[in-house]
Each structure stands twice: as structure tokens, then as C-alpha cells.
Design a protein around this nucleic acid. Structure first.
Lengths: 175, 175
DNA sequence: CATATTTAGTTGATTTTGCACCCACTTACC
DNA sequence: GGTAAGTGGGTGCAAAATCAACTAAATATG
């Protein structure tokens, strides 16, 4: 399961609660993965069952107890195992492309609307990624870890930019 | 469900068997969606239950009977309904980007290997898309339906090309 | 002549996902 | 002072997706 590995990756950076993991998914990881809260907690439980993580309850003065999850050596091994084997390069699912593929069933104005709406959303996402990118210290990107993390964001930026160009081309040439 | 709409879209082009649908997914649609055989047959059954498609058994001399699925008017309505509402623009899941994000756990040579392998796969996929693209009659793309279908392939080509450029940039600048 | 591959469809088990809830307590805002 | 948002953790359920096997006949390939 991919989600399990991503969680292991994050736990490898620091011990964390499910709640904190969810925040990471929604902020740092959102450009290439998203995860449901419930799924994160369930996967964490699995990781503990498998011996890839351990939990320690840390009491706090005001807030609820933290269920801090720590990666184990076995967990690190599993992560490295996943990283080393170049996975399947499949899936690539995009419902919007499905809509475009069959859009000829719509009247012309509705097709334009579909594309224009998508353009706005894509632009918004691109802007979001660009502002995330600005927040990254370029000196820090000299170290390999930060460089690679920033690189995935760059990838997302390139993808969104390419999609914008494509949308404009389609809007222009649509017969 | 997205799959149900995609199947409706294909049935809209011509009545088909589950087997033929699977072939379409593996050839014409593969650049933005893939579907399991079992799932296609189950979704077809659902479509019939919902009244969005009908089945007629067509006997053949040599081969097994064809369960030909025809879209109904209600099915066409459902398809158009899906096409008109600009869906959520979410998901964007890419396990490989997860591997890159955490690749710093690997020794330098293994990171290079990960990227180089991916480069080869991406190039192969791009070549495949490009050869599919060659097979498209440009005169036919003057009609709107063919244009839009070809456009989704162009999108995939742009995405793969952008990924290649990105991979090269990462390979070059990785500290 | 034997072994794949193609056509066509089906079943079962399991996993993964998504959605909607629920708890309890604290701090911030108007 | 009340209502929202944040911290932290969960449950239950259903839909969707995946994997693997199994049926069965015909045709193509070596």
C-alpha cells in the first residue's frame, strides 16, 4: 500500500500523531497525494500491528494525549525496500480528461464552459503551488533531502503549467 | 462513479460487450484511465439495473454469445449530466513522487537509479502515445468529437514530455 | 501435435477509499 | 458570553477497486 509507505516516510522525519500526519498530507504532500483522516488512523494501526511503528502516549497539560508514532528499524527497512524498487508507473487517472473525451455530447457553449472552469481551477492550484514554492528556503535546498522534496513540488508546478498551456490550445483550436 | 460514466460514454459511441469495453480502456482510453475487467462487468450490470443500459444477447457462429450493451435515453441523460458539472479536480495521486519525496533515505547511486529507471519508463510511454497519435487521421480531427478525443492524447503527451524535462533537471541538479 | 492466444464472461475474497458521524476539551474571535 | 475553530482520536458502513482463479470453445503459432 502506498499510503503506508508515505506515512513511514513522514515518521522517518519525526515521530508524529495521526493528526499531525493529516496536516502534513494537506500541506506538504498535497501536490502528489491526499489521504482521508480515517484511513490514516487505520493505516497507523496496521503499521503498529506489523511492527513497523510503535506508539507512545504523551500526556499534555491542556490538549488531549498525543499518540506519538515512532518508526521502527523494520519500518525503515520496509520504506527503503519500497524506495529501491521502481514501482509500476500505472494508474494516471483523470476524470476531467474523461469529460473532455466525451464532451462532444454537449453543446458547444457547454464545452467551452467546461474548459474555462477547469482553466480557472488549474490556475488557482498553480498559484497555490507557486506560493508554497516561495516559502522554501533555497539555501536549505542544497541538502539532498530538501532538494528532493522541493523537486516534487516543482514537478507539480510543471504539470499544472503544462495543463494550462494545453487548455489554452484546446480552447483556441476547438472546431 | 467515474467508471460508469466512461462506460456510458463508450456505449454512446457504439453498443458493445464488456470484452470490447476492456479493449477500449486498454487502447484508446489508457492515457487517462484504466479499469479492471471484473469491475467493468460489474459496472455494466449496475448500469442495466439502473436502466442506463440494456443488454441483448447476440449469438455468433464460432465464438461465445455477445452480451451487447446499449445505452438508453436515461443513460445518455446521466452522461450529459456528468459532463456538464465541472467535477472536483482532486486526487492527483502519484506514488513515484512519493518515492522521490523520501528518496533521501537511499544512497546516492540508488536515487540516480530510481530516476533513470523512471526516465526510461516515461520515455517508453511517451513513445507509445506518440505512435498512437500518428495513427490519428488529421482530417477527421476537423470534427469536434475526434478533435476532443485526440486532445486528451495530446494532454498525456504534454504531461509525459514535461515529466521527462523535469527528470532531466532533477538528475542534473541533484546535490 | 501441442501450446499459446483470442473471444467472452463470471465468481469470490480482500483491500482501499470516501463519507459521515461521534467524543472531549481548549482557545480564539466577535 | 456565545460560537466557531483547533487539537486529538476514533467508529461504522458502503462503494469502489484489485487480484486471482475458472469456464469453454476456436484459432493461431511453433
Amino acid at each position: 500500500m502506498v499510503l503506508a509507505r508515505l506515512i513511514l516516510g513522514l515518521l522517518c522525519l519525526a515521530p508524529m500523531t495521526g493528526y499531525e500526519l493529516k496536516k502534513h498530507f494537506d500541506s506538504s504532500i498535497n501536490h502528489f497525494w491526499n489521504a482521508d483522516k480515517a484511513q490514516i488512523y487505520r493505516t497507523l494501526a496496521q503499521l503498529v500491528d506489523q511492527g513497523w511503528a510503535t506508539v507512545t502516549t504523551v500526556a499534555q497539560s491542556n490538549y488531549p494525549d498525543r499518540q506519538e508514532h515512532h518508526i521502527t528499524d523494520a519500518g525503515r527497512e520496509a520504506l527503503v525496500g519500497w524506495l529501491s524498487n521502481g514501482a509500476a508507473h500505472g494508474a494516471e487517472r483523470d476524470p476531467f480528461m474523461g469529460q473532455v473525451f466525451f464532451a462532444a455530447e454537449l453543446p458547444r457553449e457547454d464545452i467551452d464552459q467546461l474548459l474555462v472552469e477547469r482553466r480557472a481551477k488549474t490556475q488557482a492550484i498553480l498559484d497555490d503551488y507557486l506560493s508554497q514554492r516561495e516559502g522554501i528556503d533555497m539555501r536549505a535546498a542544497a541538502d539532498r533531502r530538501s532538494f528532493l522534496m522541493a523537486a516534487t513540488l516543482d514537478h507539480a508546478i510543471r504539470q499544472q503549467a503544462a495543463e494550462l498551456e494545453w487548455l489554452d490550445a484546446v480552447l483556441e483550436h476547438l472546431p
